[in-house]
Write a protein that binds this DNA or RNA. Structure first.
Length: 200
DNA sequence: ATATCGATTATCT
DNA sequence: GATAATCGATATG
């Protein structure tokens, strides 16, 4: 009998980069009014204190204020006039650190993800396009700033949670982060080696 | 297969 | 006014 359980806030690694690695292989689950979607976390990135690539680098603003919430809160931002991206805050109240969820392997609610993405699932290539990338997975899961920014992943009533379903990843790989211009050389992107749903 | 570019808007300079 | 933690479309080899 395999154990499936929600993660507890107290078990999260204290360090942002360690948390990015820790979350690989866990499951993100969203209980939306339309139904449940869940997926295996296969790609993350860490954004740390003093990081020139981090949204909090120049201090707290209206946009990034949920980065400063106690670890375990959702930071959802809107980018390029098109896309939402989902993060989890990592550090004690008042200190900004985040892990960006970049890609998921769909597990539950695949048909709803396709509807949300306005896509078909005729083959594995198109299946990959559901959740491979931060904007795509947010859209597939119905995550928006209006609905989800500031949510606590670890509140007992939260509809956005992180689960350990007992799955263990064979090999976790670290690479430089994607899509940034500053501090682009640091290897703070984590992914499941060889997984189809990793972006790029 | 890789390269380049336009979309579209909140946010900050 | 410029930029952005992206995506999808188009062009070219």
């Amino acid at each position: 009998m395999r154990t499936v359980r929600r993660l507890r806030r107290s078990e999260l690694p204290a360090d942002t980069v360690a948390l990015a690695r820790y979350l690989i292989g866990k499951t993100l689950s969203h209980d939306a009014p339309e139904g449940r979607t869940s997926g295996r976390i296969v790609e993350t990135e860490a954004y740390v204190v003093g990081d020139a690539a981090a949204h909090a680098f120049r201090g707290q603003t209206a946009r990034n204020r949920s980065l400063f919430l106690r670890r375990g809160h959702a930071y959802v931002y809107f980018i390029y006039g098109n896309h939402y991206c989902l993060n989890v805050s990592c550090l004690p109240d008042g200190t900004p650190g985040a892990v960006l969820f970049r890609a998921l392997e769909p597990l539950v609610g695949i048909e709803r993800m396709a509807v949300a993405r306005g896509a078909l699932i005729a083959n594995s290539k198109q299946l990959k396009l559901l959740t491979s990338g931060p904007g795509r997975m947010a859209q597939a899961f119905g995550v928006t700033r209006e609905r989800d920014n500031g949510k606590d992943f670890f509140d007992t009533k939260s509809d956005l949670i992180i689960v350990d379903d007992g799955h263990r990843v064979r090999k976790i790989e670290a690479t430089p982060r994607i899509g940034i211009t500053k501090a682009a050389d640091l290897p703070w992107r984590y992914l499941v080696h060889g997984n189809l749903f990793v972006s790029r």
